[in-house]
Write a protein that binds this DNA or RNA. Structure first.
Length: 566
RNA sequence: CGGGGCGUAGCGCAGUCUGGUAGCGCGCAGCGUUCGGGACGCUGAAGUCGGAGGUUCAAAUCCUCUCGCCCCGACCA
């Protein structure tokens, strides 16, 4: 490709809307352009990278026996009613109405379609196990897209679905796909960590995410340096320390004027926060809910949502709290009526707690569960943080941020049950298909590579996904010989199947070098009167400072050699 | 949905408070000089100032409504 003919220009200045590094660099390099909030155009260079990432993914999906197909974007709304997932996806679903007033969904994912397909096309255990996948555009009306390609409303995703006869088969498929994911990330040059995850709106049981560690990532990861346990903070567990306060003592009301926050109460009474109980109020699918947790811990809303099996969860408003008869700052699980009470299991790890008296200016001392109050639902709703104790080995947990570049789920049979997707086993008994699903966002992967592989000059593409392999950079100046020689070399390299971006522009060396760096092409070949004098050309890797001279004779061969050696 | 910010040429911005000829830099087009890390000179094209309504002799500027975009939070695969 001649740079003079390339559609999409590089930019010196960064458009103001770009905040994240990948967004800035991709815009400046002329690889993407925004259409509207969370919707992007891929320009020729960006699209080449995209296609190469897709190629790597498809190779690995095919290698494990995956069969590529293409499912529709437009999906009947009925499918989503049947699965019930129009509730959990809620307003993230893009819907359209056709001329006959029939409601359709722009697919945010394809479990419904594929399960219904399996219902029609899978009959026997002989058809299993089965791995199907596609690379397809998904539509999700995100509340807040951000970070360029990191979080968008229209995006390409590779989604694979596995069908097995039983749980053991699913476990095997899950493992095979997870391994393939790791191979993909390695080939793309991305260091990725597999962490335990919540399955969210997709539903299902076990779930893992693949994270690229990055400060501007959206997810919090909790990890144990000692044993390697790692999980999304939404899911992460911790070993909670028992804060025993001795044998239960009689309940006692104490004056705590103006002391509302846990810290204020604790220091006023000279006790650690872990010897107090705090309450938080939520509205769960419209139901007023009180959550009790030990004072030193915080509520994890994802866990709470799961334990309550609700889809809409938010903090209760002040008026809702008052309406339920609660006194903010002195609220208490004691003596509540007609209010659902959820408790974190940390309240059983300790005794003689201090809790609110539900009376302005007063707390109770020596509160003990279950002697003093009732709980409707008990479970782990603690938000795990750095410094907490590893549930596996007792080590100290640490926290950092990551970009989710893949997510795998063990779905089980909840969807096949709903769509009656079953097969006949060896004994002629009809059983539901056991499913798994495996997602990978291509655009996000592309952005994550840039986040990971760049310097102050620009992008540094791994050779495998670079839009072109070679940046041919003649510094012709007033020397027509250099220009014509460059044309020759361009032809020779192309004849050998090498992807060359030929900077045939009449620009100064500075501009050419800076564009080469910004675009991140792996190998830069610089031809100038100097090098021509020695029948040579200068070769420089984008990620190295040093360069080497290559003889002009047999140049395509030398270039191929160089790429083989990396 | 809550909070903050911004819409003026392809990009980055000034002008808005205090109403009176729409500007600067980059980029773009032409000519010439330059040519190993974002050169220089001259000439030139390009903006219904996000949109609608209002106030006024006069609106980028004041008022009202509206649309769009970004950031933080909520939410989210």
């Amino acid at each position: 490709m001649r740079l003079s003919r390339l559609f999409g220009k590089t930019m010196r200045q960064v458009p103001t809307e770009a905040e994240s590094i990948s967004h800035q660099l991709l815009l400046r390099a002329g690889m993407i352009l925004q259409e509207t909030t969370g919707v992007y155009i891929y320009l020729p260079l960006g699209w080449r990278v995209f296609e190469k990432i897709a190629m790597v993914i498809k190779q690995e999906m095919d290698r494990i026996g995956g069969q590529e197909l293409m499912l529709p974007v437009l999906q009947p709304f009925d499918l989503w009613e049947r699965s019930g997932r129009y509730v959990s996806f809620g307003s993230s679903l893009f819907t359209v109405t056709d001329r006959r007033e029939r409601k359709l969904v722009l697919g945010p994912t394809h479990e419904e379609v594929i399960t219904e397909l399996a219902h029609r096309c899978v009959q026997s255990y002989r058809d299993l196990p089965l791995l199907l996948y596609q690379v397809q555009t998904k539509f999700r009306d995100e509340p807040r897209p951000r970070g360029g390609l990191i979080r968008v409303r229209e995006f390409a995703m590779k989604d694979m679905y596995s069908f097995d006869t039983d749980e053991a088969g699913l476990a095997k498929s899950y493992e095979i796909v997870s391994q393939a994911y790791k191979v993909i990330y390695t080939r793309l040059g991305l260091p990725v960590q597999m962490v335990e995850a919540d399955s969210g709106a997709i539903g299902g049981k076990d779930s893992h995410e693949f994270m690229v560690i990055a400060d501007n990532g959206e997810d919090d990861i909790i990890s144990c340096p000692a044993c390697g346990y790692s999980a999304n903070a939404e899911k992460a567990q911790s070993a909670k320390v028992d804060e025993s306060g001795g044998l239960p003592l009689p309940l006692e009301e104490i004056a705590t004027p103006g002391k509302k926050m846990i810290q204020e109460v604790a220091s006023f009474l000279d006790i650690p926060a872990s010897r107090t109980l705090k309450v938080v109020f939520y509205s769960a699918d419209g139901e007023f809910t009180l959550v009790v947790i030990r004072g030193d811990l915080e509520v994890n809303e994802t866990k709470l949502r799961n334990i309550l099996k609700c889809s809409e969860l938010r903090l209760a408003t002040e008026s809702e709290v008052k309406g339920a008869g609660m006194i903010t700052g002195f609220a208490s699980p004691l003596n509540v009526r007609n209010v659902k009470v959820v408790a974190d299991d940390s309240i059983t790890l300790g005794s003689n707690f201090v809790a609110g008296a539900n009376k302005e200016g007063f707390h109770f001392r020596n509160v003990n569960y279950p002697r003093d109050f009732h709980v409707d639902v008990m479970g782990d709703v603690t938000l795990t943080k750095a410094g907490h104790i590893c549930p596996m080995c007792g080590g100290e947990l640490i926290a950092y941020r990551g970009i989710e570049v893949g997510h795998v789920f063990k779905l089980g049979t909840f969807l096949s049950d709903k769509f009656n997707a079953s097969f006949l086993d060896r004994d002629g008994v009809s059983r539901p298909l056991v499913m798994g699903c495996y997602g990978m966002g291509l655009g996000r992967l592309l952005a994550a590579i840039v986040e990971q592989k760049h310097d102050d000059k620009g992008i540094i593409w791994p050779a495998l996904v670079a839009p072109y392999q070679v940046y041919l950079c003649p510094l012709s100046g007033s020397d027509p010989k250099v220009a014509s020689l460059a044309e020759e070399i361009y032809g020779e390299l192309q004849a050998q199947g090498i992807e060359v971006l030929f900077d045939d522009r009449k620009e100064s060396p500075g501009i050419k070098f800076n564009d080469a760096d910004l675009l991140g092409i792996p190998l830069r070949l610089t031809l100038s009167p100097r090098t021509v004098k020695n029948d040579s050309i200068e070769a420089k890797w984008r990620w190295e400072k040093q360069f080497q001279m290559l003889p002009l004779e047999n140049l395509p061969y030398s270039v191929v050699q160089l790429f083989q050696d990396i």
